[in-house]
Amino acid sequence: MKSFAGPALFLDRSDINTDEIIPAKYLTEITKQDLKPYILEDLKLPGFDPKGEKTAKARVVVSRANFGCGSSREHAPWVFEVNDINVVIAESFARIFRQNMFNCGMAAIELPDQSLDVLFGYSGYGDTVIAVDIEAEKISVRGGGREDALSFQISPFDKALVLAGGWVDYADSKY
């Protein structure tokens, strides 16, 4: 089963699009693994380094509204998956990106702005770790000597997809 916990990468911006997640010039790569070095390559945020240690260690991404907008492509969730990032938490997601995450057995967790502000309150700590319990629909965050717990909601079907490991594994178990 995939892990839904680890160091957090905070991307404090709305409307991060699929071209920033994985540039279109890499969509001809043959395997998912070939996408790995290009994660967030075109994302421009003050102080953000796509090749930096924070990106390399990240297992959870926290962002703002409309994450994954732009072109519909499975490559955007795939580049997270091959980099061992199985959770993206945001206020909202582009519909196709969100569904592609669930279809790949990954979690796209939507939180209200106030809850995101709690998470972003941890962005200055180098030791911030976020854990998502899909079954209990709970998030725990700790860092800088602090700890918080948050709740989220996920549809029963999307939860089943994540827990099964994605659409293919879910279908294999049901049909």
Rank of each mutant, 00 (worst) to 15 (best):
I85R: 07
G105Y: 03
G105A: 05
P77D: 07
C104I: 00
M101S: 02
W78M: 14
F97D: 07
V87H: 06
R98H: 10
G105R: 02
I85L: 12
V79K: 06
S92W: 11
F93H: 05
S92A: 12
S92C: 14
E74P: 12
E81S: 12
W78C: 10
G105F: 00
N103Q: 15
G105D: 00
V79E: 09
I96F: 04
V82P: 15
I89L: 03
V88A: 10
N83M: 06
N83S: 11
A76Y: 05
E74G: 13
F97P: 02
A90G: 14
M101C: 04
H75I: 10
I89G: 01
V82S: 11
M106D: 09
A76S: 14
A94Y: 03
N100Q: 04
P77A: 05
R98L: 06
F93W: 06
E74A: 10
A94N: 14
V88P: 04
P77I: 09
R95H: 08
A76P: 15
E91T: 03
M101V: 02
R98T: 02
V82I: 14
A94L: 14
F102T: 08
V88C: 04
S92M: 11
I89C: 01
N83I: 07
P77F: 01
R98F: 09
I85G: 06
R73C: 07
V87A: 02
F93Y: 02
R73N: 12
R73Q: 12
Q99V: 07
I85S: 05
I89E: 01
N100A: 05
N83T: 03
N83L: 02
V79M: 10
E91P: 01
